[in-house]
Design a protein around this nucleic acid. Structure first.
Lengths: 201, 201
DNA sequence: ATGTTAAATAAACAAACGTTCATTTAATTA
DNA sequence: TAATTAAATGAACGTTTGTTTATTTAACAT
């Protein structure tokens, strides 16, 4: 046999990305074989190479696309002026985005070490761009005297870790709705930065 | 050739564990071969099987030993009565322990998915035991009216994630001493739980 | 010294790995 | 309808994988 009826390059390429994402998230990059991906896509292993140069590129593209989409999504938000409100907006944004794309998030944190050096540098740069978001918000709030932080850099990393951690225990059918979880985290984070309400409420 | 001069079973077994830990942490379980471990130990691959039944057991033992040692270490601490002081003690304990054993901690969070079901259950049970520590502290503080938390379970998970996150950015030669980092986190965490000082200070 | 056990080697195993390639068929264009 | 391009197949490539085994040597006990 050869080219199959109804086969379509663009669709297959998309399916490959979807399957690779799912399997990488579930078992880890190194533990997933090209044959396994091909099987789930419904194609022979060799056919994968019509759509991507190699396994490493598959991972790199998934990570790069995710990080870029994440940055773009934040860029599309219109930001309040008040740092405290920005912080709340960020907390909700991060949780929403991460719970909506748990697999992408997961591999972005787990599979960095499986990237070859050049690919790693590219992704790492995007990641630092994202980390700059809460960092800048905290710095602004601290400068304005609204926050009470011993170290804005550490606080930013701590908040990010704490927010991203949601994905490790959140269950769709769990005790708490996503909305409720957001609320809880907003309170936690706001308390942790020691928010002082700046008059006028 | 065969048995080498000066060879010693106990020492080799220890070396194997050390090397496996180091390599698993650096490259991930699935990406490390038995031959790679053997090479670093200074032995042929087959010799590994004089000291462990298989690769999976190597990982399982590393994780189980670490989790048990972690629980034991906390068990050895003498605890203050006040929940707020307990919380501070836990924050410092967790950071100290995790920064002292970054590889063990790392694989405990990264390699769970590479465990076969039975092994996974065993490790997961130990992990939940550890998670119960901050959970109970927060519940006690909340009950005593000292903390201000919307949800003690979520708060416990958030605090754990945030503390463990230290290992991702901490550098021995970095800007901040370990002591200073502890202080920063103590402040962050105490603020996040909304500590109310319970009279008498 | 001798016999036994412990701890290695080196070779081999089948299976799985990422990737390539000649070939074949379907879809598209002329 | 014929020629061309796109998208598969399936077999093969050389490596590498985890693990086993027969064999050999060192360490230790008697």
């Amino acid at each position: 046999m050869a080219r199959t009826q109804g086969s379509n390059g663009q669709e297959t390429a998309k399916r490959i990305d979807e399957v690779a994402l799912k399997l990488f998230a579930k078992k880890g990059y190194a533990a997933v074989s090209m044959r396994e991906i091909a099987l789930e896509v419904g194609v022979q292993a060799g056919a994968l190479y019509n759509h991507c140069p190699n396994k490493q590129a598959l991972l790199t593209n998934l990570l790069a696309d995710h990080m870029q989409a994440l940055l773009d999504a934040w860029g599309d938000m219109e930001l309040p002026k008040d740092p405290a409100q920005q912080l709340e907006a960020f907390v909700r944004f991060h949780i929403q985005y991460h719970l909506k794309r748990p697999d992408q998030v997961f591999i972005s944190y787990m599979e960095l070490r499986n990237l070859e050096l050049d690919n790693f540098k590219k992704i790492e740069a995007l990641r630092r761009q994202y980390e700059a978001i809460p960092k800048n918000i905290l710095a602004a709030g601290q400068m304005a005297g609204q926050f009470n932080l011993a170290d804005t850099h550490v606080a930013a990393m701590a908040i990010l870790a704490q927010l991203t951690g949601v994905t490790t225990w959140y269950r769709e059918q769990g005790r708490l709705s996503q909305q409720k979880i957001e609320d809880i985290y907003v309170q936690l984070v706001c308390q942790s930065v020691g928010i002082t309400l700046s008059g006028g409420h």
